[in-house]
Each structure stands twice: as C-alpha cells, then as structure tokens.
C-alpha cells in the first residue's frame, strides 16, 4: 500500500506525516504526534472518548482517517489551555468535580467546547444533548452538567472562576 504524505494542522501547528492511508486520526494524534490526551475507548464510535474538533465540529477520531483531516483545523485537548492557564471549561470541570477517572474527560470537554462555541447559553437539556455522544461511567454526569453550565457563565463574563 502506498503511504500518504499529509499535513495535519493540530492546535494551530502544522505537522507533516507520512502514514498508511488506513491510519485513523486517533492513531496519528496519539502515536505519530504523541498527543495522548485523545483517548480511545471503543474504536467504533460508541463511546466518544476520542472526540476531537475538526473545523469546529466534534468527530470521533477513531472513525476519521488521518488523511481526511488533512488541511482542516484540528483541536485536541492539548490545545485548549492558554499556556499554564486552563481553559474555563477545563477549570470548571476541575472545580466542580466533573472529573473522576478522567478517561472520558478530554472528549467530554471538547464536546462542551463545540457546544458552547455554537450556543453560549445552553439550557440543561441542551447541555445534555450536546454531550450525549460522550459516555462516562464514573460521574452519573451531574457534575459534568454543572461544570458546563458554570463554564458557560464564565465565558459569557457572568462570573469569574476561582
């Protein structure tokens, strides 16, 4: 099989790769770029742990070929914090206890990011709908909903974290 030369733009940075066409975006991120914050929980799009943003939209990176994401803007969990400062969604997840084992957290946080980018003031139902593709077995989701609601307020400037 012919390998493909491609450029992935991840968190604003271009990376040149030579890879098998069958390499998934999740594999390329984790194994080729060392961005292991993207987790893989099932490999078939059932759990949402591998969620990343491609041109602002959530996708299961286990079901996208790396080459399909070439030329698009990819955002992974490593791209959210501003230097040492956590993104308000990350901050809210920590503050509200929305993280337990942490394996679903990167995907969950990115789904929350896509949601809040599109809808800065979601209702509780809209939060639940927006995060419905991300399974969490630890939290029962309650503190996740609270964290997203809190982050939305912060991002709207209604409150400051701390």
């Amino acid at each position: 099989m012919n390998k493909l030369a491609l450029t992935l733009n991840v968190n604003g940075q271009d990376y040149d790769l030579l890879c098998e066409p069958s390499r998934t975006l999740a594999q390329a991120l984790r194994e080729d770029l060392g961005l292991t914050g993207t987790k893989v929980g099932c490999g078939v799009g059932d759990c949402g742990a591998c969620t990343v943003l491609v041109d602002g939209q959530t996708v299961n990176s286990c079901l996208v070929l790396a080459t399909q994401a070439a030329g698009k803007a990819i955002v992974t969990i490593e791209g959210l914090a501003d230097g040492p400062k956590l993104h308000p969604i990350q901050e809210a997840f920590v503050e509200h206890g929305a993280i337990q084992c942490g394996f679903c957290s990167p995907g969950m946080i990115l789904s929350a990011k896509a949601l809040l980018d599109a809808n800065p003031a979601p209702s509780e139902l809209e939060i639940r709908q927006g995060l419905s593709g991300n399974l969490c077995r630890c939290t029962g989701y309650q503190k996740i909903v609270q964290a997203v609601d809190s982050a939305a307020r912060t991002l709207r400037g209604e409150r400051t974290v701390g």
């Binding site: 292991t36 992974t76 914090a81 956590l86 997840f93 993280i99 084992c101 942490g102 946080i109």
Partner: peptide, 16 residues
Amino acid sequence: APRLDGPAKATGQAIF
C-alpha cells in the same frame, strides 16, 4: 478541595 489530579486529567497530561 478539587481533586489533586484534576488539572492533569482536564488537559490530557494524565498518562494512562
């Protein structure tokens, strides 16, 4: 108190 490992897990730095 927030979890000690919260920031590592929120940023993808936590190693599994």
